[in-house]
Design a binder for these strands. Structure first.
Lengths: 334, 334
DNA sequence: GTGAAAGCGCTAACAA
DNA sequence: TTGTTAGCGCTTTCAC
């Protein structure tokens, strides 16, 4: 593998001129440029990025901390992030943290080790020591699941409003007992969604019943378990609101196994609008999130941070949409 | 941010000793080691990985080329790869190529640019110029969708045998007209699976009917379209074998919309065994693949290649399993 | 516009 | 066991 010296020798110029031709060609005479380019070609030269980065103190890498890659929602976020990163000449260092703080911290440290220029965290945990003063915090953006009152820029959804909208929708359909299957207890997402759920009930003059809330962890299985608890109640809910589509699909399986029909016997709603939501039977009423946009926005903001450009708004809120499909319908009269 | 010289000064030793303490502590006296470690602590020193890598000509990065991150099967593969990489002290540079060869080539070149030590390609395309002699090919492993007769080490499934097993299963259930919804035309996977399908038919003395084969692209929608074509036939198949679960779930939706039942009116089979396969209605009969193992194995082999260790077997074949659920049943007598 | 030369932070060969 | 020292390949002054 050839190096810059080899190219310089071939072109009959100095290494500095080769470097300039590659980084800022406009500062080199066209004829010199051509000779250098010819030499680059001839030597099939590729700059050693390690050396470039080492010297210029920029890695072009962005760390992205993902709680669960296998979750289709996050897969879409990553996909959006990757596109934006690539467009901006950055690469994505992927880390499946499984929600473990030690792993998150370890990967975030890659920034300190000059292995990455910034961090995107998709979970509500600050991987940097709280003792670090805000001023010399490395570039980091917190997206999707956002730390309430955190010190980093965020990109989030108004989860309170989204959960409220869905609950209102179910109430408008005549439902009075609405079960809620929550996500992981550690996630502020679920706190916000619970608030939205409560707000809608209150607004409609309905009493909040703690028995109608059960805890899950965003997996298919959690939805199944949650639904089986709900269905076992003597006065069971007529509608079930799951905090993500995976759990809703898990719940659907359980409901069917009990010989009940959706939506005739019980209405069902999800959250996220994963591709599968439109393909299950019946198609799922859910909250659509712009997953790719989370990734794109996060990368854009992070790069601004890295370039020390001013950020127009530190807390971006992306829009949601209530997507009505067949899984939620008017409550049957008894 | 402090550097090695600062630490050396603090510890009253040379930079070489600091470097040694960090890389091979056993070559340093315990008491020296302690002094160095104390100095490291005091200076809150973190080695500049860019410099380390630049100097030692190892990046610790592995590029992984993924056709579609949003596909749950690949998400599982990535997850396995990431775990193995992390365990071995490597990081994963993720690239969502969308199956585009130019993007694949571009990212594979990161190896030439000393930005990564090796490449994992999950698609049947060689991102390196065929002109490169095998001897000085960068470390690369080809997994999942494998180039037939390619020059790189591979980790694959016996797709011929798997498709044959599934087709045999459907035949054993009494089906004589079995529709096949294929994946992307460019993929050798689909060629192998077609072979297996044909082999099973032949073995059972059934004629191969080209009208029963239709082309898809592994997406939910392709399954829907494929099924609608099959169902429109005058002499429609009594079983449908889809080359992945996503397409099977798409087909399921179409079948139901036509007012038909699975498996009473038509049997359905998929491939991959994604988590959702067990949660659709009815649960999907499918071929289970060890997705995470693909990622793990790929990383392990790649690291052997990087370390120039001999590879026990260049072409690993991972086992599949025929998972019988309710979507495929005995053909109803007419 | 171009070249000479210093040096980024570290590792490794060699010497002591 | 430890220190000295020469670079790794490149960018970036600073002269010319």
């Amino acid at each position: 593998m050839s190096n810059i010296r080899e190219v310089a020798r071939l072109a009959g110029v100095s290494v500095a001129t080769v470097s300039r031709t590659l980084r800022s060609p406009e500062r080199v005479l066209p004829e010199t440029r051509e000779r250098v380019n010819a030499a680059v070609e001839q030597a099939s030269y590729r700059p050693n990025l390690m050396a470039v980065q080492f010297r210029s103190r920029k890695t072009g890498n962005l760390v992205i901390l993902v709680p669960a890659i296998a979750n289709t929602f996050f897969a879409r976020v990553i996909s959006g992030a990757q596109k934006a990163a690539q467009a901006a000449g950055y690469r994505l260092l992927l880390c499946d943290t499984q929600g473990r703080e030690d792993i998150e911290r370890q990967f975030a440290e890659l920034v300190y080790a000059h292995q990455a220029d910034g961090v995107i965290q998709l979970r509500a945990y600050d991987p940097f020591d709280a003792a670090v003063p805000d001023a010399d915090l490395p570039p980091i953006v917190n997206a999707c699941e956002v730390i309430n009152g955190g010190r980093h820029p965020t990109i989030s959804l108004d989860n309170v409003a989204a959960a409220k909208a869905m609950t209102e929708h179910l109430i408008a359909l005549g439902h009075r007992r609405i079960g809620l299957i929550k996500g992981s207890a550690s996630s502020p997402l679920t706190r916000d969604r619970l608030s939205g759920y409560k707000a809608a009930l209150e607004q409609a003059g309905l009493r909040f019943d703690n028995d109608l809330v059960c805890h899950g962890d965003f997996t298919l299985n959690a939805g199944f378990i949650g639904a089986s608890k709900m269905l076992a109640m003597t006065d069971r809910p007529t509608a079930l609101f799951c905090e993500n589509d995976e759990m809703a699909i898990g719940a659907l399986k359980c409901i069917r196994e009990r010989g009940l029909r959706v939506p005739e016997d019980i209405s069902l709603a999800g959250f996220d609008d994963i591709p599968m939501a439109d393909y299950c039977d019946p198609p799922l009423t859910t909250i659509s999130q712009p997953a790719e946009a989370f990734g794109e926005k996060a990368v854009e903001m992070l790069i601004m941070l890295i370039d020390k450009k001013p950020i127009p708004e530190r807390h971006v809120v992306l829009p949601f949409e209530l997507t009505r499909r067949k899984s939620a319908a008017r409550r049957a009269l008894e």
